[in-house]
């Protein structure tokens, strides 16, 4: 249990909007054993050096979700991030508030936008009178049905995923990974009676803005893997409603596009997604690209064995969304 301590340089973002013109980075140095969590280091700063440092924390055991912050630019729980590896990789520990949420003070951010997205997906069981709960008894649920949730019940709403997400950063119309993973949790819950409505609604409320970049899955401290659940939502949405939005039309269009020849027909894909009229809007850009890359207007050769691709489609493509 006794590891020798090392001197760890900390640089902590400090900013009180009421009194500071701009943020600054306060430097501290502590002697710490390498397994020491960053949270412990920050609490020592508060207790021994500077009680004015403001931050959120509570359980220190990665279950309450309070202490998410940027640690060397990565969205992480401070209580679960040991100083040793960060020191080895970066020579110092830079601590900053999470992204995509306005700073209240120092490491404390305003989570209003994050909670709003969560509430917007209606995170509660929606029942209907034709399917009442069994009186005085729990609903039966098989272990296989519980498996379908995957790890979404582990989410502690820490917002590390929200902080890490480039789509959240770029577009307020994107609900963020947590809200979508939470929506998935309700869509696969056998007790919820609104699966169809939820899937239809989310198609027009940002589902297809997910970039599938997996930065959320990388940041998540609880292995929820939100990007994979979002992928599931996309497929479920197409099955529920067909290809009605740009995003679903593009995915289904792509699926149909390569069925034919086993390889992508770029021009055809543009037409499938935008429609013949929408394509006109792309004309200027298309010509610009064509000047450098004239072969884009030619149809590609089919692959050898395109018939095999066709047969695989016949076996596995249930035609969902192709109408």
């Amino acid at each position: 249990m006794s590891e020798p301590t090392v001197s760890v340089p900390l640089e902590v973002y400090r900013f009180d909007p009421a009194t500071d013109a701009k943020p600054c980075y306060q430097k501290y140095a502590l002697d710490l054993a390498p397994h020491t969590p960053v949270l412990t280091a920050l609490l020592r700063v508060r207790a021994e050096v500077d009680p004015t440092l403001s931050m959120r924390y509570s359980c220190r055991s990665a279950i309450c979700g309070s202490c998410a912050m940027l640690i060397n630019s990565k969205s992480r729980l401070a209580c679960e991030t040991p100083v040793g590896p960060e020191l080895a990789a970066h020579g110092r520990i830079v601590v900053e508030p999470m992204r995509n949420q306005p700073v209240v003070r120092d490491l404390v951010v305003d989570q209003t936008p994050f909670w709003r997205e969560y509430r917007r997906i209606e995170p509660h069981l929606k029942l209907d009178k034709d399917h009442p709960m069994p009186e005085g008894k729990p609903n039966p649920m098989s272990p296989a049905e519980v498996e379908r949730f995957h790890e979404t019940p582990r989410c502690i709403a820490c917002a590390a995923c929200y902080s890490a997400c480039p789509a959240v950063e770029a577009d307020p119309a994107f609900p963020g990974p947590m809200a979508l993973a939470k929506l998935y949790r309700f869509v696969v819950d056998p007790r919820d009676q609104a699966h169809q409505d939820r899937l239809v609604r989310i198609q027009t409320e940002g589902l297809w803005l997910c970039l599938r970049c997996h930065l959320c899955t990388e940041a998540c401290p609880k292995d929820v893997r939100p990007s994979e659940r979002i992928r599931d939502l996309k497929e479920l949405a197409i099955r529920a409603q067909g290809a009605t939005e740009r995003g679903s039309r593009h995915a289904v269009g792509f699926k149909e596009n390569i069925r034919d020849r086993g390889t992508l027909n770029e021009m055809k894909l543009v037409r499938q997604t935008y429609g013949p009229v929408g394509m006109l809007g792309q004309l200027g850009q298309g010509v610009r690209i064509w000047r450098k890359k004239p072969e884009i207007t030619k149809r590609p050769h089919p692959i050898q064995g395109a018939d095999e691709v066709e047969k695989i489609y016949e076996a596995l493509d249930d035609g969902s969304g192709s109408k």
Binding site: M133, G136, P138, P143, E145
Partner: peptide
């Protein structure tokens, strides 16, 4: 008993036995 049933009805995801019971 009624308390646990109520929480299950509220949406708690409990671990289940093979027969679907809690």
């Amino acid at each position: 008993g009624p308390t646990v049933v109520e929480m299950e009805h509220f949406g708690t995801i409990f671990s289940r036995s093979e027969d679907g019971s809690l």
